[in-house]
Nucleic acid binder design. Structure first.
Lengths: 298, 298
DNA sequence: TAAGGTTACGGCGATCGTAACGATC
DNA sequence: GATCGTTACGATCGCCGTAACCTTA
């Protein structure tokens, strides 16, 4: 057994068990990886993959168990380099933040700016993806930290930390009937609604609140992105239910915002990272910066 | 980085940071390991060891952090082979039990015999050591399972499971004054005592019980081993405080045993193994057998 | 001076690349 | 016939062993 065989197994999973693509990713010819896989299976004495003809189509039960250990080794291997790098120069490095559009545009700018002032040598990558994909990014070591509202709490391989709480609001053009008077489930349900795609930015909270109250929302447009929603609201297509913090007092002067805290339960945005992933000094500092911006200093 | 470098770091720890001995253990010449260590440190960009002249005398702070990851890799490496082996033939293998003399002689024989009947292909090694060393044996992968009364509960890397509870008893030659009447702290404290060495087989319970009651035991001989204690009791050196189960009705007919459950709190013998250590099918079965023998079936 | 560690260099073998072949969609 | 995988064989590069040298108890 050697580390490149371990690496190969990892890459094979990423490439959907395609040896040719794995070879390409590992910068060797295809025959090399083919042989390495054979050698490894011979050493273990039992195949790791189910083959259909010559193609690999699935992991064997043994393969699945082995793969869990393989991930640990890969994780530790990455950690070793990161720890060393952090030790040599804790002022320089990369931090890869996986998050959604809304967080990237309306929450992260301030903490990122403050972080940059303290750590000008750290490059910041923002990996934008759907909440579902954010978790995958972490697991595949494509991102170090995720900032995300949905879907992180169940995963036991993740450390999660509450960042801040927020609520939804409704935005509409000026002179819209909803700009006056109390807003109830019933009143809101009368209008065509524009809001987030399913699985995004507290959308599940919106759904369930109206379901519990016994009303059906007529969602005529769903987008991943607050700005898209605002655009169509401006076109008069309906009213938008968005995260309150995504209303910009300056840029959105032409829209009216009204709070929905009394209708839709608050959402919680969390910080998540892999439990066994080594976070350099500056990454831990970045998390502190996020908590600070969220008002949870310490 | 490659696995033999990782292995080298492990071996270096085992040999007290001695490159020559590490080389011997790894079946290569000394210059080879010297170079591999240099290459690895160069790759990381920072030394892992504090050197005095040319000798390695300690881990650097970086080295300590790295070493934690190294252990994970080694653990996973072992697991991979064990999982494969278990998959190929779950009827054959080795199980290494670290335990003390008392357990090996008075508790393990029955469950081991029953286990052998079910798994005749599994070889059983009993690694005898002091309770302190048992834990070390687990950590150094010299043993798979420990059966032990003391010192296992605090270690967070171990999974522990209660096996059975027992209490101490006093043994003495026939016609000894203590063979008649109630036994109190005070009465017992009048005689010279022979019992287990410190850290062995519930010795701490004996100490604390008498300390709390305000009496001092005159322990004139301490041994790791019940049989040694009995031998000196037979010579008339004093009375022995031993684990009740270590009295053999047949072999020890010449000794009188009297219960001390009312004086010394019960002890609990536990089963322990490393959290991230893969236990083959038969090892899990062996644990079941231990629990069964302890009356905790299932 | 013995024990522990480093450096230089030649030889060997593991692993790679090329290439030709086999199978499956 | 395009994609994917295997097998054979020569070439290469990494790693080991020998050996000479350095350093400290």
């Amino acid at each position: 057994m050697n580390l490149s065989q371990i690496e190969l197994l990892r890459v094979l999973q990423e490439t959907g068990l395609n040896l040719s693509k794995a070879a390409e990713k590992m910068h060797v010819v295809q025959s090399a990886v083919s042989r390495q896989l054979q050698l490894f299976e011979d050493e273990l004495g039992s195949p790791l993959f189910v083959r259909k003809g010559k193609k690999l189509i699935a992991l064997t039960p043994l393969g699945q168990q082995i793969m869990a250990e393989v991930s640990r080794i890969n994780q530790a291997k990455l950690n070793i380099h990161n720890i060393a790098q952090d030790y040599i120069n804790s002022e320089r490095g990369i931090i890869r933040i996986a998050t959604t559009h809304t967080q990237a545009k309306y929450f992260l700018p301030q903490p990122i700016q403050r972080f940059r002032e303290k750590y000008p040598g750290v490059r910041i990558y923002i990996v934008q993806a759907s909440p579902e994909q954010l978790i995958v990014q972490l697991h595949e070591h494509k991102a170090d930290i995720a900032v995300c509202t949905e879907r992180v709490q169940d995963d036991h391989d993740l450390v999660t930390q509450e960042c801040y709480q927020w609520h939804h609001a409704v935005v509409m053009p000026t002179n819209h009937p909803l700009s006056e008077g109390d807003i109830s489930y019933e009143r809101l349900a009368r209008y065509p609604i524009l809001t987030y795609s399913f699985g995004f930015t507290g959308r599940s909270n919106i759904e369930s609140a109206f379901a519990v109250a016994g009303f059906h929302l007529d969602i005529i447009l769903a987008a991943a992105d607050t700005d898209v929603i605002k655009t169509y609201v401006r076109l008069g297509m309906g009213v938008g239910i968005i995260a309150a913090m995504a209303y910009d007092a300056l840029m959105d002067k032409d829209l009216i915002i009204r709070d929905l805290a009394h209708l839709i339960p608050k959402s919680t945005t969390k910080i998540a990272y892999l439990r066994q992933h080594y976070l350099p000094q500056y990454s831990r500092q970045f998390i502190q910066e996020l908590l600070l911006a969220a008002g949870k200093s310490q």
